[in-house]
Amino acid sequence: MKIVVTIVGKDQVGIIASVSSILADNNVNILNVNQNIMDGFFNMVLIAEMTDDKLKLADLQKLLKEKGEAMRLEIKVQHQDIFNSMHTI
């Protein structure tokens, strides 16, 4: 299952490291990353694939949400199908 992770918040050291280590720990393979800084704000959209059948999306959402709260970032994890549905026929 492919997922889309969006991260928004004040730029700081270790955002990508923290998020990608959580993904790696859970066997989530990163496919595409787009990141920039605008006015000191960190924006990242990351597309990844969950390879572990036992991992539930809700659990991954919880892990990343907790990390986001600790680092004062807004981290959103969504099933990729909502974007496919809306933008492809």
């Binding site: 889309v4 969006t6 787009n34 959209v45 597309i47 959103k76 990729q80 909502i82 974007f83 496919n84 809306m86 933008h87 492809t88």
Partner: peptide, 12 residues
Amino acid sequence: MITIDDILETNR
């Protein structure tokens, strides 16, 4: 393949 713009548009 969806693009970053598609993702940002949906979330906006």
